[in-house]
Design a protein around this nucleic acid. Structure first.
Lengths: 338, 338
DNA sequence: TATCAACACGAAAACGTTTTCGTAGCATTT
DNA sequence: AAATGCTACGAAAACGTTTTCGTGTTGATA
């Protein structure tokens, strides 16, 4: 990389001091018009632009937001990034993206690296392993050190910080209610293991909707998918039961259910209605297209970024932590009869 | 954010100079064992970690790679990021991700911001608008200033830098050849406008495969999709022709083609075989699952990162620009008969 | 003519770190 | 007793900015 032109160089070449150059470039009244013009012309000609690192060190702020995600190859997360980036950009920030790969150790290391002065604050969705172990000390430390922090989607209420979440209970309720309304009687649910909060919440919404109809919850209709095992065969078990509808807590489970149903010769939506979660490309482009709970990842990202930047820029006024609940809505497509 | 402990503070508290503290923490032989232990104990107790900004300014390197993508909500690009991040991480770098949103102006601005000292090098996939306008001055400037740069996927051969590309011609050939081999006679292709190189290359591969069979290219079987218009209706026109196979240059075109075929009552793969591009989730989970050219985005990311970091760290020895061609292979699924 | 303000600029500190060089104090050698 | 060599540390510069404060020169005022 070619050395870049600096204020120092300009000062030396023009026979003035660095203070004069700095002031001239910022159009200070302290500098005479002629000098200003001379300096500006020179700077312009050599395409001077101030060095960011120097500014960051001096101003003690980086204008960078750190983002730590469990993974990125996932429609929801990339959508969130997109939302964060939009707001960050508008408010003069850049984003530095890292991944925990769902591993607690990498989450800890990444937090360490980023908080050594590289970023002004963090937006995080917690790794599964950390949630499972309930080992959240690295987050408590952030709070302790007053590092601006916003959690989203995968959060934990023992961590006192701003957060942005989906109304998962409400969403599970809405999805199930929709299936009930179109006349389904035996509704299975495909969800995550219990330590994943989002799956648990969606299940709660499901149970509430079912109970309202007076029907008893049938444990056999609840599948907790363990992602370390074969997904297909786990979901397959649900089809041993008599079902006329499936609520899946993500796109992939939904698509897999549809595939199994087709293999069994079940017609969709005539014999089986399916509702998924996350409005990604699979739901939109598979045939039949899949009715889903749309998760507004973009909005979540925007809100998270706004919360974080507000927090960063109002360091003085200690606001009590806020939780923004993003309500989701149902996008009805071909996989559920209307 | 709480003020962090610095070498200065340690020095003052312990009544020594900053040089002594710095040397002690780096275990220099210049410092007596007792002093070293005293300083280390203190630093440890207060959890001292060196400030990254200061190091970056002093070392004149950031250990950060800038990534500029046209968009992120796209399986291919997020896969590439994933690959870049993996290698970057292994080699001690972080990534700073920005988006051009396909706009030339934002691409220019982003490059400007990142090259003001925030990153050691750039990995970029060029925005459509820049390619269409053939306005690539901002890239020529990077070369001029010897900024380490790696382009991937959307590249341009007038820019003299390392690059990582897919063998799109070969891929188009392979996909078409497969359709010919399974007995298809009238193969349509759904591709992009001509200024998008990848689409053009894939079309070339298609044409080569067709010509090899002795059949003449039928212009009516070539659809150039303009993404500003309605995709569905443009693709629909292809079905006015007599076709028994479709090669689509991306997942979405493929899925759309399948949808239209189904609407028309055509059986897949019996009456129509479909091959897509990009091995994303749609292809995998739609039913029928879609035969695709798998694009190895992860590998591309890894290679790009390795090229860039090599370039950054061997600033002296001027290597001539390299181009890595990642060959793609066909993943045969249900949408093409075997 | 002495005083004072305005003008235009420079010196220096600050941000946090590393590294080169210098040196005080002591012990060893001639 | 003088010269030499270690040991253990400190001063200062460097990275590139911004900003506070000081100051020499000019011109106007009393």
């Amino acid at each position: 990389m070619k050395p870049k032109i600096t204020i120092k160089i300009i000062a030396k070449e023009l026979g003035v001091s660095t203070s004069t150059v700095s002031k001239a470039l910022r159009d200070s009244h302290e500098i005479s018009i002629e000098t200003k013009e001379r300096i500006k012309a020179y700077a312009d000609y050599y395409n001077y632009r101030p060095n960011n690192l120097a500014l960051q060190l001096r101003n003690q702020k980086t204008k960078v937001i750190g983002i730590i995600l469990p993974k990125i190859v996932h429609h929801f997360f990339s959508t969130v990034i997109s939302g964060i980036e939009k707001v960050a950009n508008e408010r003069g920030y850049n984003i530095m993206v890292c991944f925990s790969n769902e591993q607690q150790q990498k989450e800890i290391e990444t937090i360490n690296v980023l908080t050594n002065g590289s970023v002004d604050g963090l937006i995080v969705s917690i790794a599964k392993e950390s949630l499972r172990n309930k080992e959240l000390n690295h987050f408590y430390n952030l709070i302790e050190n007053e590092v601006p922090l916003v959690l989203f989607d995968r959060v934990h209420n023992s961590i006192e910080c701003d957060s942005v979440i989906v109304d998962d209970i409400g969403a599970g309720y809405k999805a199930t209610k929709h299936l009930i309304n179109i006349g389904c009687k035996n509704i299975g649910i495909i969800t995550t293991p219990e330590h994943v909060t989002v799956g648990l919440d969606r299940l709660q919404g499901y149970e509430r909707a079912i109970k309202e109809t007076g029907i008893k919850i049938d444990k056999n209709l609840i599948i907790n998918v363990d992602e370390d095992e074969d997904i297909h065969s786990q979901i397959h078990k649900l089809f041993d039961e008599k079902i006329d509808a499936v609520f899946a807590v993500n796109e992939i489970y939904a698509a897999t259910a549809i595939r199994i149903a087709k293999e069994k010769g079940m017609k969709i939506p005539e014999e089986l209605s399916v509702v998924g979660f996350t409005d990604g490309l699979i739901s939109k482009y598979s045939s039949p297209s899949i009715t889903t709970v749309v998760q507004h990842g973009f909005t979540m990202g925007e809100q998270a970024a706004d919360l974080l930047i507000d927090r960063i820029e109002n360091d003085k006024k200690e606001r009590t932590p806020q939780t923004k609940v993003i309500s989701s809505n149902l996008k009805i497509r071909e996989s559920s009869k209307s």
